[in-house]
Design a protein around this nucleic acid. Structure first.
Lengths: 198, 198, 198, 198
DNA sequence: AATGAATGAGTGTTCATTCAT
DNA sequence: TATGAATGAACACTCATTCAT
């Protein structure tokens, strides 16, 4: 008797997500070239062949990872925040607290940030593969908050985009630290804010 | 013919340095796993075999690169600076200006910082390979300057080591940017100082 | 419930035959190495696992195919024909007409001939797997008819076995054509006869 | 000191040809799917990697083989023959003798014919890869000789193209035999001619 | 010393086969 | 019994390393 079609789809979806989730961490830590399918599959505790049931190639798997490692949720938060009737200082305070909180507790979040920023840095090559629109909108929204801060006299002078870039660069820096280092001293929200606030 | 022998050694030394210099950049950009000897040799415009005349293996080459990519010169500067009868604010100002200046103009400097920090992050694995003593002394000297700043009331509160780590982390961040991005906005010395100064 | 059991056996037999029939065509067209179980099962519209309910392995399936792709029926016809009180010319004429007729209309027949001849050509390897006695009896009966023709002065000179081999070789040739080509010009019975008749 | 550029090219050309020549036989005997790179390289007595120094992939190697396994030389002969002021019977006699001679003595010739005809039969798929123009010109020249024979009353009736196809089909048949069978009885030029001559 | 063709261990990928459902 | 996801041995291919020139 055939398996129920529905159940089958569920199982597939579940396995696919397991592979994606575990691979995200692996790729973030070891890079594309440094990740071997054999190690990866041992890490996920599946056979090498199983990966190829769900993905066409190592590269395809990597691209799918980048697709799911987007900033949809983060963007939503920043959007909401930027619209609230708050001072830039408060907005950046709340944002920083949330971001650092997740960096500490959610390894996947750190991996996502690390992977995306790496791709953005290497850039050029295969931009097509990656939808960077979420990221760039986060940057421009952050820049707007900084601009608001400059008008309010709480943010430092300088190009808001440069400062936003600086702010998220520091987030990337601590994403790397949390990915690679077991014992490290996390900066405080104050430290992070200081990139853009007086 | 002692002179000819001398000349021979010179030529050898020159080739060896060329390989080291070009490889430093290549490894910094592509990582160890992402660097193929075939690509590397094409980049240097020598035959693959030539690399093995000067280095025992890819790993040996990499270790030699790390050996020359030390912070001897930087350490010297920081040492001198920390001993001068200056305020912490001025010391950090001068340090920041010099570091950002080199980051902009000296690609090798950026590569050196990127490579070292990467190794430090991945850490654990082969610490033996890398002499991190220069780096850690720079860190502790920077921490001392920050401590001085805290006494003088110009530096922010918090663990001086954490703040030094933050300061150099940002330097690493912009080393990466200058390595990978062609057009980017460099932060100012003020921006960099703000990681640790009020 | 004896009836239900009987019915069950029937269904099994039916499925088994479907697999054998469809596989015969597939193997004839693509060869053993060129036939993937995944493609085959998709072609039959069953799951891959189902094949293994009826056959132990790909090789077992192939051997079973060769077992059913015998020349029992053809042998019977040639036997009857060779015993009739007819001239060699008439015998070969009737044989040629029947063979070409089936080649045109019965894809399974073409596949059978193609597969068997291929196996005979590659030969040596696994002769054990294939009972070539039917085939060789057809050859020797054909040789006898040719001998008769030589006595009657209608067949060309030369070793009767060589000529029989030639005759059936041409049949193989057009079996291949009908298997692979959609539009081709079939030779006439006269053309086929001419391999052995003046 | 670098190897002489010229000598290098020679060595490369030589090895490339060795691989092509030996692979032609191997692919002709075992087909594309049935040919393993490991077996092939063992057969040529080189390392597997060496094949990839000269060819991008197994498929690329196969395509190159088809490119060299053309009928340029055969076409030249048929062209000359068809222009000579001879009767069709004599032309076909000479052609048949030459072809059967080469089939017996030149394994490469048999492999070439076997491979090309196989490709032509499977056809459709990747016609682009193979230049079939030589082959089709041989066919049409042969058809013209047959037409001449029909006018002279020596060739049998029927579509000249069909008969040319038949003639070369038989050549393919005995190419297969000479490739696969060690002991077989080769047909005579007379036998071959009889496909198209009365 | 410098070369680049040759190597083979190691990596990515396929596919016959198994097995829980 | 029929299914198709999971498996891992076998295959295609890569790349650090060697070596004859």
């Amino acid at each position: 008797m055939p398996k129920s079609k529905e159940r089958c789809r569920e199982i597939r979806e579940e396995m696919r997500n397991t592979i994606l989730r575990k691979s995200l961490l692996y790729f973030a830590r070891n890079g594309f070239a440094g990740t071997k399918i054999s190690d990866l599959s041992r890490n996920i505790r599946i056979a090498q062949g199983t990966i190829y049931v769900y993905f066409e190639s190592k590269e395809d798997l990597f691209k799918e990872i980048l697709r799911i490692a987007d900033y949809k949720e983060e963007l939503r938060q920043v959007r909401v925040l930027s619209r609230l009737p708050l001072s830039a200082r408060v907005k950046l305070g709340k944002l920083s607290e949330r971001v650092l909180e997740r960096l500490k507790n959610d390894e996947m979040f750190a991996a996502k940030i690390a992977l995306n920023t790496q791709i953005m840095l290497e850039g050029s090559g295969d931009c097509s593969a990656l939808d960077t629109s979420y990221q760039s909108e986060i940057f421009s929204l952050t820049a707007k908050i900084i601009e608001q801060g400059q008008r309010e006299g709480t943010a430092v002078e300088g190009s808001p985009m440069k400062l936003a870039d600086y702010y998220w660069g520091v987030v990337y820096l601590y994403a790397l630290k949390s990915l690679f280092t077991t014992h490290y001293e996390m900066i405080s929200a104050d430290d992070l804010e200081r990139t853009v606030l007086k």
